[in-house]
Computed example of a mutant assay.
Amino acid sequence: MKAIRIITIIILFFITGTAVLHAEKEPKKQPAPAAPSRSEVKVPNSVLTITKENTYPNSTQDQPYLQPSEWAQKLIETSNVDIENPNLIKILNESTVNSAPTIGLRATIYLGEWPLNYSSTETSPNWEFQKINTNYFDNRGGTANHQIHYVQESQKAVKGGLTAKVPHAEDVQKMMLIKATEKSNLPLAFQTIVGAGTKKDQVYNISPRRMGYLYAYAPAINEKGKVTYGEVYLVMKGTKRSIVVKNVTSQGVGAWIPIQDHVHFGFMATETPR
């Protein structure tokens, strides 16, 4: 009887120990990260795409996002400030540091002052950013409706840009373009061109005794936010490599970014010239 009890205790101990061991080995489940919020811009019916009709083929604007290499990603994760600048990430991707242990190795390498990240606070559209064309017909002497449609009379280049001077403007523009595109879900570029002879088939009626004006506008996104700057150092201690950012500053910044291959139309019929 005593032997049976001893065997039973051993079996229970083994089962309990195994359960605890499995519990220790099983990784704790982390809560799923919240999906990033996306404030997609709603395009009104008065805005039409001209991607197929545009006689000037705008090149598709590839977003300047650069995927960090495995080594660069590990290095970025050591930084005390978020790093999103594509140009800085490119430099880290193209750099290699020997990780072999070196007795007494201590080095701090200054990589320069960089705009490190951009935080967007507002992404709003201006559908009449720049007037690019006017089609006109005088039907004051007519007895029936006259139909007109959009025909681009001359080639127009629409340029955006930062609303104020900031250090490293090109890097800042790239980060702002990425965020504005993600939030608006629209094809954005700091320059878009509408070619001469571009047409749309949509018809606008001008009644008798009236003059008709069809205005075409290039729309744009007004992007506002904050850019963070800092002095970047690569710190090496033995086999450890890390990034340290010093003298961190922030600055408000704004930009106009045209919406590529989109046109906003405004039609007016009037008895008097405009």
Results as ranks from 00 to 15, higher is better:
Leu188Gly: 01
Ile76Met: 14
Lys52Arg: 08
Asn126Pro: 10
Ala72Thr: 07
Thr198Ser: 03
Glu26Ala: 13
Glu271Phe: 00
Pro167Gly: 08
Ala34Ser: 09
Ala220Ser: 14
Leu75Thr: 12
Glu223Met: 14
Ile7Thr: 11
Gln147Ser: 12
Phe13Met: 15
Asn85Ala: 06
Pro31Ala: 11
Leu188His: 01
Thr16Leu: 15
Asn126Ile: 09
Gln63Asn: 13
His262Ser: 09
Ala107Tyr: 03
Lys200Asp: 15
Pro258Leu: 07
Val172Asn: 03
Ile193Gly: 04
Met211Thr: 04
Glu182Val: 10
Gln152Tyr: 05
Asn98Met: 07
Phe267Val: 05
Leu234Ile: 08
Lys224Cys: 04
Asn222Gly: 02
Leu111Lys: 05
His149Trp: 02
Leu75Val: 12
Glu128Ile: 05
Glu77Trp: 01
Gly225Ser: 08
Leu12Ile: 15
Leu88Ala: 06
Thr272Arg: 12
Asn117Val: 03
Tyr136Met: 09
Ile193Asn: 08
Gly225Phe: 02
Ile83Thr: 04
Phe129Leu: 02
Glu153Trp: 00
Ala196Trp: 07
His149Gly: 11
Val245Arg: 03
Ala144Pro: 00
Val194Tyr: 11
Glu231Thr: 09
Arg140Tyr: 00
Thr134Glu: 14
Lys226Leu: 10
Arg106Pro: 01
Asn135Lys: 07
Lys224Leu: 05
Ile221Arg: 00
Val253Ser: 01
Leu214Trp: 11
Asn222Tyr: 10
Thr49Lys: 09
Arg274Val: 15
Gln191Ser: 15
Arg106Glu: 14
Pro33Gly: 05
Lys156Met: 13
Lys25Glu: 09
Thr123Tyr: 06
